[in-house]
Design a protein around this nucleic acid. Sequence first.
RNA 1: GGCCCGUUGGUGAAGUGGUUGAACACACAUGCCUUUCACGCAUGCAUUCAUGGGUUCAAAUCCCGUACGGGUCACCA
Length: 472
Amino acid sequence: MGSRTRFAPSPTGFMHIGNLRTAIFEYLVAKHDGGEFILRIEDTDQNRKVEGAIDFIYNTLKLCNMDIDEGPKNKGKYGPYIQSERLDLYKKYAEELVEKGVAYYCFCTEETLSLMREIADKKHKPFMYDGRCSHLSKEEIAEKLANGEKYVIRQKMPKEGVSVVHDVVYGDVRVENSVLEDQILLKSDGYPTYNFANVIDDHLMHVTHVIRGNEYLSQTPKYNLLYEAFGWEAPTYIHVPMVLGSDGNKLSKRNGDASFMDLYEEGYLPEAIVNYLVLLGWSPSENKEVFTMEELIKDFDIKRISKSPATYDLKKLQWFNHKYINALPDDKYLEFVRPFLTYDIHDKSEEWVNTLLLTYKDHISYGKEINEVVDIFFNDEFTISKENQEFLESDENIPLVIKTYKEELASLPDWNIEAIAEVINKVKEKTGVKGKLLYMPIRIKISGIEHGPELPQEIYLIGREKVIERLS
RNA sequence: GGCCCGUUGGUGAAGUGGUUGAACACACAUGCCUUUCACGCAUGCAUUCAUGGGUUCAAAUCCCGUACGGGUCACCA
């Protein structure tokens, strides 16, 4: 039987790079041995729900070429795949735990809790719920319930002993049971907490490998206790190292381009993003780093996930992106960059625009960069620097070269790159000038700067009219 | 603060006791190519694996302490 993994985001309408990376790992683990990849929406926090977030998640995964086997918008045997639609289930299982004596009703209000927290704070002691409600008698509970008092259901933790959790990447992790709090399983609004829903759903949905950020590592004993209480088999745990920002802190919204959509809108190809992300905290066994999704599925190996956190490096992502852009066939490339071009091109021909875009195919490392590089073809205002002006006056042949260019270009029957390239040769023959003195004067005269793309392209793109004008 | 986890160059990392004088890639530097920029190519860039001690004939690799970094201690996930 293949592995089953799940991607379980909360619907916040924001796809953080770290989350995406986890999703990729989950997808790869499942697909590596022909299993299923499940999407489950964890919307148990009603305050954080965002309209349209589910479509957003689907869209993101689709762009990244990850197919969902089961999820809210797919068929699946173990649905619903949205937690807010499974409330009855959680209640039933929570009550089962109460019956088993491993959970209890707690009637403490938020006010009493914050009071207790304050007291602990004053004593400089960490707060931990003292479990007072676990001592309530059956009668007291029945009475409070009958009165309609609000309650939560809490998990009763063992007071002593040590829990050992086995994790595929971190090995055996030991945690003292005494530090485990009687955590809330079911909230007073009837919604489960993540800690509970997660366990119930993973079991019910037959998830075999739980992959998540290592911030959950120290919480995992609590989950195991739950599995034990139900008599269920715990899944294989794979905690993955976190992705840090360049400042060494956890990535956050405020850390700039930490979201998939931001990158996508900047003109990063999803394939490149995926390829880059998968290498954060994972390394292939062979010496290779450019992978297609198929290759990743084939080569991905849990054993090669590293323990230490990885730092997100935009520069390397740009390198990947550059490579991917460059590998695009011309038509795909044009389709890709065209939308990023923000200059007014309504009076330009299709051919002109395509030539422009293609000229810079191997220059740009992300879509939006096209605008930074293409300015000279739209901006008529430029000044020739002092150094360049001096250069123009440094050789007596230069005026002749410029004059010859002007005459030849003006009389050119067809305005295309091949013809222009011919003109350059002709000027060379006519004037006997070659090398820098042949190319630089015209380059400076028509664009103001000494560098740019291949000269014929540059002349073509600037256009006959302007070239003639600028050579005058 | 308690507990958990981590620490190989600016970055991602390979390496799990002995041809490792620590791969490879990004970045950076220099050179070549080119009319220029970019691309491409070539070369350089950790006497050393946070640190101190120990085990061993032999340690980046095993053990202990210290420092530093991160995580976690919610009716958030």
